[in-house]
Nucleic acid binder design. Sequence first.
DNA 1: CTGAAAGCGCTTACAG
DNA 2: CTGAAAGCGCTTACAG
Lengths: 341, 341
Amino acid sequence: MTEPTRRRRSSGRVTLQDVAREAGVSPITASRALRNERGVGSELSARVQEAVQRLGYVPDPAARALASSRSTQVAVLVPLLSNALFVDLLEAVHRTLFPAGYQTLIGVTHYDPEEEEQLLRSYLAHRPAGLLVTGFDRTEGARQLIQASGLPCVHLMEATEASGVYCAGFSQMEAGAAIAEHLLSRGRRRIAFVAAQLDPRTMQRAEGYRRVMRRAGLYDARLELLCPEQSSISLGARLFEDLLKTRTDVDAVFFCNDDLAQGGLLAAHRLGVAVPDRVAVAGFNDLAGSDQMWPALTTVRTPRAEIGEAGARMLLQLMRGELPQPSCVRLGWQVVVRESA
Amino acid sequence: MTEPTRRRRSSGRVTLQDVAREAGVSPITASRALRNERGVGSELSARVQEAVQRLGYVPDPAARALASSRSTQVAVLVPLLSNALFVDLLEAVHRTLFPAGYQTLIGVTHYDPEEEEQLLRSYLAHRPAGLLVTGFDRTEGARQLIQASGLPCVHLMEATEASGVYCAGFSQMEAGAAIAEHLLSRGRRRIAFVAAQLDPRTMQRAEGYRRVMRRAGLYDARLELLCPEQSSISLGARLFEDLLKTRTDVDAVFFCNDDLAQGGLLAAHRLGVAVPDRVAVAGFNDLAGSDQMWPALTTVRTPRAEIGEAGARMLLQLMRGELPQPSCVRLGWQVVVRESA
DNA sequence: CTGAAAGCGCTTACAG
DNA sequence: CTGAAAGCGCTTACAG
């Protein structure tokens, strides 16, 4: 006796039905047991787990997402992958989320708010379980998309006490100010600020620098070199060269990111400029290689791995329906004094 | 008159039904029009597109995946994000896939075959439309998972003529040999090979180096410094120092990756070793900063962006059911001669 | 604590 | 070229 020809599309995949049949329970019970929902007889639960093992059952995320209108994917939006900072951040996020059963959907915005909005739109269609975004600066459209989605969302890298906003980060302004203060404490007076990219966090560091310089009565707008190009070692070299040519009395340079500072240090060699004797050089972030430079680079070690982990943990809580306390986790940073300043 | 209470779970989402109703066609026709399936009246098709615009319809990927057992996600597995090489690769992949309607699911294996297999298992459950993996070296389990999935799969970074295998890459061995030959052509005789990580591609470069050195009658196993640790600038500095202490007659060093070479160059400064006069230094990959080193680093420029793009294009073809010709795209690389060697 | 029914939003397979 | 029916594999909402 063959089965009458039915409209079947099954790909032979082991389904929850199969598990339920094997365990001798209903599919609903099997489903609940799998998701550790409260109120499943411990004996039944064990039978289900056994059946899962025996059959090698893997739940179908698409079916799950469709039925529950929620997936196990978390969208993470970062500006760039070519800045090691964000790679460290993503590593920590993945390390925290993956064991909890979530996949990380990485989106790269290239510091472009329009691109971020487009990515958000595309990722939101996938019904992610949660959102991790970089900073607070975005288009009104993006803001509304996030709002309207009703999804748990944690902001990374910056800190605010605004209510209803979850975030993990630190005060970029304070950290920027700390470097300026360090330079002042070393007797430097003509301290330049050299920046690229000019994203919001870079400008917050600039603001920290300005406040300190103003308070010391040493602020001079002509010592700011702001360049919208993408940050890189070679750009740092070029900017350092430009700076020394046009501001001959500069005695220190605060680069907004270590890659620029490394480029500056390398340019100094080429130009025969003594660091730190003639010009002190400081960076920001403590990226790979900064400790190996010659002279070794003075910089700020930023807690990106800690931010990634704390942010992911907060999101995990929110996705469980809990309310994280506090709503803003502030992580510590420190000035790393080496030889260059 | 209120509707009788029905079991509704709708989240108010605009569905294909709504689009069909608005356009005055059946849902199936709307579905076909959306997917540009052959055989939809051009007038109907236009009406559907208009309705989509008017309603702001976004297809539900989960429903689509469930019904068709195929999603629009492509899983990409790379060893590491902290090597700029793979970031460039991913950028190119995303740039090629996203406009075609595919999302890139990034998986990081940390050069661990077990971790790769676990990631593969997890991603495969999401019914990706295709797979992009790094190299050919993996566990038997991973190989079978890929095979059994029946999904289109393209291998990146390496090249083989094995049939039934799709790949985009270049011969790591030949590129490694080219650096060794360049060093020989500069009159160097005691050429060391310094490597970290020791992944398959690194070892292929080693093999290229060996063949050239043997052919020249200059091979000496004691000139190979192989270190399983993760590659980094600081490790390069340490290995360079070790090497010069223990192999005092070395007159050139071929580092398997630019980060190591950069570290070596920085260590040379610190130790007062003249490059290239006393020791020539060469790297591999031409990473950011290598052109800014002092002296500027001689290295091999590898076509990772081209590999990413070519690989993604092949996958796109495979996902459309076409057979890419040739099945292996070989991209070009070149020795970039600068000052260090 | 357990379950039968309905539904999530699409597409496949069969007709015409 | 177009469509009515069934199904993809789960979970929600309602009962008991």
